[in-house]
Amino acid sequence: MILATMLNSGISLEYYMILSTILFSIGVLGVLIRKNAIIVLMCVELMLNAVNLLLAAFSTYHGKGDGQIFVFFIMVVAAAEAAVGLSILVLLYRNRKTVDVGMFNKLKG
């Protein structure tokens, strides 16, 4: 009960907006700055998580659970994406013996 009254004081929505904006930008930074394809995939996961956090915050402030269901579905899709993406990466590594995204330029013609 003490925790509930403590939480009642509330954190402003701006806190979550700023936090998820910064986390999303860190994800963008990682995608741009890193050349290891696995780390790039990880940074995409970080961006997805930042969006999830913002969606959950808006859902809570709105007082409806629908947003949190969407977060759940985003997690489902992200898990499937990670599985397929990583198996494609393993296949690429088997062919090219590298995970450097700069080396995957065969489609460039």
């Binding site: 509930a4 403590m6 939480l7 009642n8 004081s9 509330g10 954190i11 929505l13 959950a56 859902s59 809570t60 402030y61 709105h62 007082g63 409806k64 659970g65 949190q68």
Partner: peptide, 12 residues
Amino acid sequence: EMKTAVGANSEG
């Protein structure tokens, strides 16, 4: 302005 304060809600 939202009707509920954070933490007082139960939809999560």
